[in-house]
Design a protein around this nucleic acid. Structure first.
Lengths: 170, 170
DNA sequence: AACATACAGTTCTAAAATAGAACTGTCAAA
DNA sequence: TTTGACAGTTCTATTTTAGAACTGTATGTT
């Protein structure tokens, strides 16, 4: 599979993975949420090669996740700032951190704590149902096709090769 | 950076990314949550090469995210089932899907809907503060070092090369 | 008996992505 | 005049991934 194709699959997860689903991109986004804004900042914080960093930043800008804002003229320099679309990635980041806090910490405990300004307490992120407010777990959720589903009879995707992907959505 | 190193960084996000932060792994996990359990099931659903699939499944088993359970003798065959550690990835998956539903759908709308068995309604996942129950956003959260933080003065990491990563945690 | 099929891998080569280092170019400060 | 900060770009070497074929056990078919 070419990764461009991912973004066109009838699956919100595949599409999202096509955009942010690689290691460096996720780490770059971590830095964004930690307020890093400049090329050298990302590079020295992450140890990523300059080549890849330039690539990934371009992609994130193309995708509307970062905005490239000039902060000085001559030589022209820019900062990379999260757009609203980028800020909306926050639950993904927090969910990843929280899983790591739960399953990947050593004896020393969590590297970082998160304090909620509104209530002043250190917290964990909890994912709840938008309708009833109860915490969610996989077993309590039933998945069913929505309007954008690629229904089996329609469009009749050829599925030429035996090894091609069946259509599947999420 | 070698990806093994990621798992040892003092950052829950880096560690988690080291385990599940690549495209195929995330897609394999999607299939797991959609109840796929067998090698051929994953392969035909995703179109992943058999070689990589075998690799990734092994890694997920090593990490305790999947359990390999025999379902027949001679020839020995196994199913791959999510452990509790694997099931705990659900908020990450839902957060990814939800972002895609918000920012990556076409005119046709969402490919999949999610129904909460408890309340019976189609829902969106919402991330809230465990302490006060309010929805979270990046701007309302203050991050500070926890017990597992790699504090600057201690341990005195050499940081030999100019291009090596500064220590950074999340 | 001979053949095809299901299943779960393993093994190969070619193509693509990433690592690592060096280089470019503008400007400011020493 | 030299050095350093900054934001890249360019190059080669290494590592990963893609793609296809092959292995091996067992069942079902002709």
């Amino acid at each position: 599979m070419k990764w461009k194709e991912l973004e066109e699959e009838p699956c919100s997860m595949a599409r999202t993975i096509g955009v942010i689903g690689d290691r460096w991109t996720l780490l770059i986004l971590r830095e964004c949420f930690l307020r890093t804004r400049r090329f050298e900042g990302f590079q020295s914080a992450l140890g990523i090669t300059r080549h890849l960093l330039a690539e990934r930043l371009k992609k994130l800008v193309r995708q509307g996740i970062l905005r490239r804002i000039p902060y000085q003229e001559s030589p022209k320099r820019h900062e990379y700032i999260l757009t609203q679309k980028g800020l909306d990635l926050y639950p993904i980041m927090m969910a990843i951190v929280h899983w790591g806090d739960t399953h990947m910490v050593d004896e020393r405990g969590r590297p970082l704590l998160h304090q909620h300004r509104k209530c002043g307490k250190d917290f964990d992120p909890v994912m709840v149902c938008s309708e009833c407010g109860e915490p969610l777990s996989a077993k309590e959720v039933h998945t069913h096709p929505g309007p954008g589903a690629r229904s089996a009879p329609a469009a009749a995707a050829p599925t030429t090769s035996k090894t091609k992907a069946r259509s599947r959505a999420a």
